[in-house]
Every structure is written in C-alpha cells, then in structure tokens.
Amino acid sequence: MSSELENYLTVALKRLEKAYKEVLKTQGYTAEAERIKILTEIVKEQGNHENTGTAAR
C-alpha cells in the first residue's frame, strides 16, 4: 500500500471514530452508528491488517 493511501486511511479512520462517538452521544446506537462502524472496521482491515481470516474479538 502506498504511503499516500495509508495517510488518507489514517485520517479517515480518525474522522470515522470521531463521527461514531458523536452519533452515539446524540442518538445512541442507531442504524447510522452501525453504518459508520462498518466503514470504520473496513478501513481498519485495509493494507497490513487485511487478513480478516483470524478471529476479531
């Protein structure tokens, strides 16, 4: 993975986590919170952490 892409994903991850906390605070665990969480986890699984075959706790 290029370092440029990795930088974008790092920034995206921070923003997604912040957005998730905000939604939880204002609306609770809603469908929107779940969508943001899915995107967050997909971002985390990119690049070096791509192997999703091992158990995620």
Partner: peptide
C-alpha cells in the same frame, strides 16, 4: 468470517 466488519454487516 470472524471479523468485526462481517459481524456488523450480518446484523445490518
């Protein structure tokens, strides 16, 4: 799959 993303997707 045993990943977090798959678990959220399954529920959704």
């Amino acid at each position: 799959t045993s990943s977090p993303s798959s678990s959220y997707l399954t529920h959704a």
